[in-house]
């Protein structure tokens, strides 16, 4: 037996051939005596090989032009300059570009919306999922004040939001799916108020339902899915109502919750 006990780090380093020769021999003696451990580290080696065969082909793919172009300095980048003006310039440029893209995209979207109300256009240009995802990202991490009116006063919450939206709105009950209402708030929409209901499960995972009454086109849609970073959004339009359910949980689970919400709202 070796003087020093074999540690987990030794085993990992053995998998990665990162041990000095002498230590490697000691680890191998240990593994020879510990078949379960040997099996485990061999599985790790297989993982490594499998990951390489899975992803190494990417190395041989032809590079997209936008990436090869970036092997040379971008014309706008001032190189070897102090950080501050440089950063400002870059971020201003990027902000300007994204504002322009958003404006053009939004305009094109709204123009296309009436003319070609195809599934794809609706999915790409509807501002609903974006607004909902932003509202989710802003308020759901808030520990101290995630909602304006808490669910303890659910009747008040419902009365208040219904009054401000000018139409009855009621939060669906998602207790069967593990999510309890924690409250709601009023938010500015494109032309008036919209409501956000927030739910939370036992692990603290939050879910928001964004309810807009601004849909003028009366173009009902089936479920659509959007993704903003880690926030997944299912949304649909029902008459003048637009609904968007946002959470940082996987798409399949969110889809089940969205179905439950849809069913409850449909029965109202």
């Amino acid at each position: 037996m070796s003087a020093q006990p074999i540690t987990e780090a030794d085993l990992q380093a053995w998998v990665d051939a990162a041990l000095p020769e002498a230590r490697r021999a000691e680890v191998e003696d240990y593994l020879a005596a510990q078949p379960a451990e040997a099996e485990r580290v061999l599985a790790y080696q297989e993982q490594k090989l499998a990951l390489r065969s899975l992803f190494n082909p990417v190395l041989d793919e032809p590079l997209p032009e936008n990436l090869t172009a970036l092997a040379s300095p971008p014309p706008a980048a001032a190189i070897e300059r102090p950080p501050k003006p440089l950063l400002e310039r870059w971020s201003l440029q990027r902000i300007a570009a994204s504002v322009l893209i958003a404006l053009v995209g939004g305009l094109a979207g709204w123009l296309a919306h009436d003319r070609y109300p195809s599934a794809e256009n609706l999915a790409r240009t509807s501002p609903l999922p974006h607004q909902a995802a932003v509202a989710h990202a802003v308020f759901s991490p808030d520990v101290r004040r995630p909602v304006e009116v808490s669910a303890e006063n659910e009747d008040q919450l419902v009365a208040w939001l219904s009054k401000r939206l000018g139409t009855p709105v009621r939060p669906p009950k998602l207790g069967a799916l593990g999510f309890e209402l924690i409250g709601g708030r009023l938010l500015p929409g494109n032309s008036g108020p919209v409501a956000q209901f927030m739910y939370q499960d036992a692990t603290g995972q939050r879910l928001t339902l964004y309810v807009s009454t601004e849909n003028a086109t009366n173009q009902d849609t089936a479920f659509r899915f959007a993704k903003e970073g880690q926030v997944n959004v299912f949304y649909w339009i029902d008459g003048k109502f637009g609904y968007a359910l946002s959470a940082g949980i996987d798409k399949g689970k969110l889809a089940r919750i969205a179905t439950a919400v849809y069913d409850q709202l449909d029965r109202k």
């Binding site: 082909p57 479920f223 993704k227 970073g229 798409k251």
Partner: peptide, 28 residues
């Protein structure tokens, strides 16, 4: 600070990552 990437459900379902065909594809 996430960015918006919207896709229809159908598109997403057919979004298969490109990868060469291999005999051990299932394992991969």
């Amino acid at each position: 600070r996430p960015r918006l990437a919207t896709q229809s459900i159908d598109e997403d379902d057919f979004d298969v990552p490109t990868r060469p065909t291999q005999t051990d594809e299932l394992e991969l």
